[in-house]
Design a protein around this nucleic acid. Sequence first.
DNA 1: ATGTTTCCACCTAGGTGAAAACTT
DNA 2: AAGTTTTCACCTAGGTGGAAACAT
Lengths: 203, 203
Amino acid sequence: LLHHDLSDSSIVVELCHSDLWTSFHRLGTEMIITKSGRRMFPALKMRINNLNPDKHYIVRLEFLQPDTRKYRYIYHSSRWMVSGSGDKLTTPQLHVSPERPASGQAICSQTVSFERLKLTNAEPSRTGQVSLISMQKFQPQVVIQEVYNTDCSDVEHSEQYVITFPQTSFMAVTAYQNQQVTTLKIASNPFAKGFRESGKARI
Amino acid sequence: LLHHDLSDSSIVVELCHSDLWTSFHRLGTEMIITKSGRRMFPALKMRINNLNPDKHYIVRLEFLQPDTRKYRYIYHSSRWMVSGSGDKLTTPQLHVSPERPASGQAICSQTVSFERLKLTNAEPSRTGQVSLISMQKFQPQVVIQEVYNTDCSDVEHSEQYVITFPQTSFMAVTAYQNQQVTTLKIASNPFAKGFRESGKARI
DNA sequence: ATGTTTCCACCTAGGTGAAAACTT
DNA sequence: AAGTTTTCACCTAGGTGGAAACAT
């Protein structure tokens, strides 16, 4: 449970599945990016509290770059090493909103989920897809932004609250590098069961 | 393509899959209602045009009762007959909104779909579920309502446009009565394949 | 060499009508 | 007897990691 005293409010944001995020973070979280888009696992879900029930907000996600270096995974030492200078995202801020603007009341009464968000290494085009760079680091950042009009025309003048969960940073990859990450994904993601535990042999 | 000249606007609402709706209507559309909730098929989807792009609207669905009679299906004559006086819905207007308020621009640029809506014969409780009465008639009605605030607090004073598609009226049932309705559902709904066409025998 | 793309078997999730069991 | 509820096989839809093919 994290408190962020920001501005005149005392907004409380709780990251869901925090333990799981921490387990991945210890191994060095890897997120697969594909051309058609791949979900994040774990998904970014959070409970937000203490917003003004009568005001309206939009919740966004930005993908920051802690650095713009290119990394390489060294198998024999099980570590990530810098392998080059890498690239900066052409669009500096990638943000995706799970829903339209909603009241503080509505947002606080439910879980804000980015589970349907997909990561891609294709050019930024489709809405709901976030375009990242393989073998580089990213840090998701939650932005809670107050809006005065439903059409968000005055977004630049509105108050904005920024929360970062360090344990959600990850390396974007097109194929898993650390086998322990793969194992934990299989163990914890219901969709990922590989060909291991059932004892079935591959044909 | 239906034109409804309402108030100062010339709103155009087009029912999707209109031919399919008409085919069902000829047979006497039946919609299954269950305790856990069942989707409508066909789903109510529509394209809305000529809303003011800058104003904001909410699109709702109401389930009217053309009458409050109880019906019975007579197999040998393949007809519905009145069998009793029936009941009136305890909550007179059942409306479900697919989304939060959105701009006319946003609404007109996409298909407004109520495909996720579920019909139930349980007490009205869960959001997104509509509670109906078995063996009685219902007529869905689309309500496009202008909102001035995102919290919809002044909903009663706002302009509202009502559109009804007569071919979407139906009988609520817990089991299909007319075998031709069943056959058309199986033929047209990808989820409904029964045990007929594959030639597979039931164990 | 090393990283990317495509395809695929396997899985979850959940929408169907049919049949059987249940209720009244 | 007539309508409701439950269960179930079958299906669509789509999220996984693995392996092989491909690119650089």
